[in-house]
Amino acid sequence: MKGRWWFHKVVLSMMAAVLLVAPGTAYSQEEVSSAIRRYRDMEVSTGYYERYEVLPQRRRPLVGLPGLRRDQFPYSPSGAQVRLRSRLADSHYGVKFYNVQKCETCHPAQSDDLHTVRANLTCRQCHGGEPIASIEHYYSPMNPIRRHAYVCAKCHEGASASFASYVIHPPNPADVKALEEFPALFYVFWAMAAIAVGTFLVFLPHTFLWGIRELLARKKETSSESHE
């Protein structure tokens, strides 16, 4: 029994070492290899990993969003505007007077969405404390490979990668800009608007004319309703 104590010590210190380097707590239990495949699917059967499941290669330290409308994350939560700083460990590195500025001073369009206005979330509740890593930085909690688990699932228990492709900061669906950033929303918005406006264009004048017309025509006498 005593002879095996060194073995236990080794195991315990290895476990301690693992705890020291382990990543922070996630709020849901899975990272995904793609929108439809889980780690487990691959691990049990083939041992196959997609490239962003393993540590970054020497030549490719940062893994980012695939391009707009490609691959399994077609829309970014920001409406996929062009970002020059999307791969930095500190996305605000070098911004002048950074610590006396408010988020909405530079990001006004990002502060009028449902999460901000209705749910009263502050930017930091999702984007985290300083330094705020760029969304495409490999270790950012906002990186699409783990965003659903590290950010969305804080409130939306069980959030999946697909769920996390909900566009938090959507463009104005009526705006031409939405045609580039979120075409599905643009087309559906205008199709629905056309149905609604079309209905009103037909029936509002129709109703109005009917009202006028009956003012000019007395109703014929009826037996039961004449007393009312």
């Binding site: 929108a35 077609p74 829309y75 939306h156 228990e157 069980g158 959030a159 999946s160 697909s162 769920f163 996390a164 492709s165 909900y166 566009v167 959507p170 669906p173 979120f182 599905a184 929303l185 559906v188 918005f189 629905m192 608007a193 149905i195 609604a196 209905t199 009103f200």
Partner: peptide
């Protein structure tokens, strides 16, 4: 939404939201 995003992509909820809103106004 969490369950439905297993069937449709999450950005479909952006679209569903506006369809729901415009149809309600109509």
């Amino acid at each position: 939404s969490v369950s439905s995003s297993r069937i449709i992509p999450g950005w479909g909820l952006n679209v569903a939201f506006w369809v729901h809103r415009i149809e309600a106004i109509l």
